[in-house]
């Protein structure tokens, strides 16, 4: 299939990009294009204008600071997955980017493009939630920041306004035990269920747990009952099992995603199993299992 026609502009800076989309009712930003282009090729999306933000220098790159890492929106998955500091300080983010799509997709797809697109079955939303990241957004009125917990609103819907763009993600260096466990859809590779876990350990005890799930609801979702099940406990088969049992307990089954690969009921079953797998992997990484 072939995309419909559109106007195209390459933005040289964030402000140029904002100017270009402001006031245009049907403009889309394009980063790596790995979410948008397939939709345009299938004839489902036909934006009148694309503003290419792929070459904006200020949006590229990973900067490590004391206590957190800033990932520029246009940083490719491949670069995040190869960042040693992130593997040390926020392994859930590093491991998740390593599991997105395939090699070629990771060479093009970007962190900002991913979360702004907010595909419910994509991998990064869960990791961003688990990592307690902050999303930086720029718009006509300047810059603002949104906590991951408030960022994802629904299917392809985020807190980013019409004339705004994601400039980067700030990932705190906390909870160095982290992991991502994913059941990919055998066709698309997207997550049927993906569970991202960040644990802050106090010795063998889980001081804090954040668990984000992909593919289950129509946007990335925290699994608070599972977090509660391990917090304050030593990480063990029992506490992990309890977390698995609790994983889907707060979710409205009616709103759980369904497709030919997995019904809502089975997704919740997988959610339990993959929550356990993610916790086990995180525990092993932290050396407590």
């Amino acid at each position: 299939m072939y995309p419909a026609q559109f106007d195209y502009e390459k933005a040289g800076s964030v402000s140029e990009a904002i100017d270009a989309i402001s006031g245009h009712s049907d403009a889309e930003l394009i980063a790596g294009g790995h979410s948008l282009l397939p939709t345009m090729k299938s004839g489902l999306a036909e934006p009148e204008m694309l503003v290419d933000i792929g070459d904006i220098d200020e949006l590229h790159g990973i900067e490590h600071h004391d206590g957190h890492t800033h990932i520029g929106a246009m940083t490719r998955y491949a670069d995040v997955a190869e960042d040693n500091t992130l593997w040390e300080e926020a392994p859930v983010v590093a491991e998740t980017t390593e599991m997105i799509g395939d090699r070629q997709v990771r060479n093009r797809g970007t962190v900002g493009g991913n979360i702004a697109h907010a595909d419910p079955a994509s991998d990064l939303p869960g990791a961003v939630l688990a990592a307690d990241a902050t999303v930086h957004i720029a718009g006509p009125d300047g810059e603002r920041s949104v906590e991951a917990d408030d960022f994802f609103h629904g299917m392809y819907a985020t807190d980013v306004g019409e004339d705004e763009l994601v400039t980067g993600v700030q990932v705190p260096h906390e909870g160095t035990a982290g992991a991502y466990a994913k059941k990919p859809n055998p066709a698309s590779g997207y997550a049927l269920v993906g569970v991202a876990v960040r644990l802050t350990m106090d010795g063998d005890t889980v001081a804090d747990a954040r668990i984000g799930a992909n593919g289950v609801m129509d946007h990335g979702t925290r699994l608070e009952p599972a977090e509660d099940a391990v917090e304050g406990q030593a990480l063990s088969g029992d506490s992990i099992g309890a977390a698995g049992d609790a994983a889907g307990s707060s979710l409205d089954e009616y709103m759980v995603m369904e497709d030919q690969q997995a019904s809502a009921e089975f997704r919740l079953q997988l959610l339990g199993a993959y929550t356990e797998r993610a916790l086990e992997a995180a525990g092993e990484r932290a050396g407590v299992l």
Binding site: E28, L36, A45, Y156
Partner: peptide, 8 residues
């Protein structure tokens, strides 16, 4: 019905 960039 607007679903991200899909707006039929």
């Amino acid at each position: 019905i607007s679903v991200g960039s899909v707006k039929p």
